[in-house]
Structure formats: structure tokens, C-alpha cells
């Protein structure tokens, strides 16, 4: 379970790339006409914590989800996100929530189901942060529940399922041979 140097560098490199994707997603999201209901807007949310699922899938270390979102959010902020420094702080909330999912699996489970479950929890992190800092507390109860549920589903698909597809693609390329994902799936490839 010890972090290796290459795990740390990979986390930084991948998170920085995710941070750039987050920024693109920010701008795309902001380009949407604001006449859309916040519950509908929440379908976008999941991609903003894909780093928290993709990186733990590869390196399988405690704290990976949190660190990944911290770096990804920081990059998003530093590259000029319209959310400013909140891109970083909400990243911490989302990353901590996904981290909880992997902790529940005692850092042993990284199947597609578990990735989607952990990523769904990221939606709770997003909701809690947005409740205090993005005015979600002022929404009507129905809108709040809708926002939470849709965020969780979005997380399961856009962060969890997509991470698994990317991770599986990477496993096939053979470049992950020296990372936990590559070593563990060499034995249990049938499970994929």
C-alpha cells in the first residue's frame, strides 16, 4: 500500500491533464443558456471528479482520490477557471467523498461497480459544498433532492464508468505493467 515515487508523479501528471479537462468543461458548462433547471445542469457534474476515480484505479493507494482532486482542482483554478479558487476547494470536497468510497472497500476493490459507487459518492461531496458556497441551500427541497440524485448518477457514469473504460484501455496497452492496476489485473484479467 506504500506510495511509490512513480505513483506520485503519475498522480500529478494525470491530475494536471484532468484539470485542463475540467477547465474546458467549466467553459462548456458556462456556455449553456442559464434557462436550464439546476437539476438538469447537475447532469454535467460527474466529469469534474473523474481524476478521483481514474487515478485510484491505476495506482490503488490510500489518499489517491483526494490528492488527485486537490491537484486537478488546483490546476483548473491556476489555468483560469471561472470558478476561481473554488474550483480547488470544491475539488477537495468531491475528492474526499470519493476517497470515502475506496476506504469503504478497504482499498482493495477497484471493479467497475466499485468505481461507480465511489464516484457516485462524489456527488454527495459536490452537493454539500454547493449547499454552502453555491446557493443550493436556497433551492426548493425538490430541486435540492433532484440536484443530489442527478449529481450522483452523473458521477457514477462520467467519473466512474468513463474511468473504467479509460483504465481498461490503458491496461490493454501494457504501459501499466509497473503500477498496481497492471500487476493486479495480470492475474485476474478474466474479471475485466
Amino acid at each position: 500500500m506504500q506510495w511509490k515515487m512513480r505513483d506520485i508523479v503519475l498522480t500529478a501528471v494525470f491530475s494536471a491533464i484532468c484539470g485542463a479537462v475540467y477547465l474546458g468543461w467549466d467553459l462548456l458548462f458556462k456556455a449553456l443558456p442559464p434557462v436550464v433547471n439546476p437539476v438538469v445542469q447537475a447532469t454535467f457534474n460527474g466529469l469534474w471528479w473523474i481524476a478521483a476515480a481514474l487515478i485510484p484505479f491505476i495506482i490503488r493507494r490510500p489518499g489517491a482520490a483526494l490528492l488527485a482532486e486537490a491537484i486537478g482542482g488546483f490546476m483548473e483554478f491556476a489555468l483560469g477557471s471561472p470558478y476561481g479558487v473554488q474550483a480547488f476547494t470544491i475539488g477537495l470536497a468531491q475528492g474526499a467523498a470519493v476517497e470515502l468510497g475506496f476506504l469503504l472497500g478497504r482499498y482493495r476493490h477497484y471493479s467497475v461497480g466499485w468505481l461507480m459507487l465511489a464516484s457516485a459518492l462524489g456527488g454527495i461531496g459536490n452537493y454539500i459544498y454547493s449547499y454552502f458556497y453555491y446557493g443550493v441551500n436556497a433551492y426548493s427541497s425538490a430541486n435540492q433532492i433532484g440536484y443530489l440524485v442527478v449529481s450522483m448518477i452523473s458521477g457514477a457514469v462520467l467519473a466512474g464508468l468513463l474511468s473504467w473504460l479509460l483504465g481498461r484501455g490503458l491496461l490493454r496497452t501494457g504501459v501499466l505493467a509497473n503500477f498496481a492496476a497492471g500487476r493486479e489485473t495480470a492475474v485476474s484479467e478474466a474479471l475485466l
Binding site: 503519475l10 500529478a12 491533464i17 468513463l162
Partner: peptide
């Protein structure tokens, strides 16, 4: 999306390993 991202991500993995 996956095949599009793959060359960049595969490169990123190898780079991380070399830098470390």
C-alpha cells in the same frame, strides 16, 4: 473518447515512470 485519450494517457504513464 477512450481511443482519443489513449495516446496522451499512455504517454503520460511512461513519462511519469521515467521522471520518477
Amino acid at each position: 473518447v477512450v481511443t482519443y485519450a489513449l495516446p496522451i494517457l499512455a504517454d503520460a504513464v511512461r513519462l511519469s515512470e521515467r521522471v520518477a
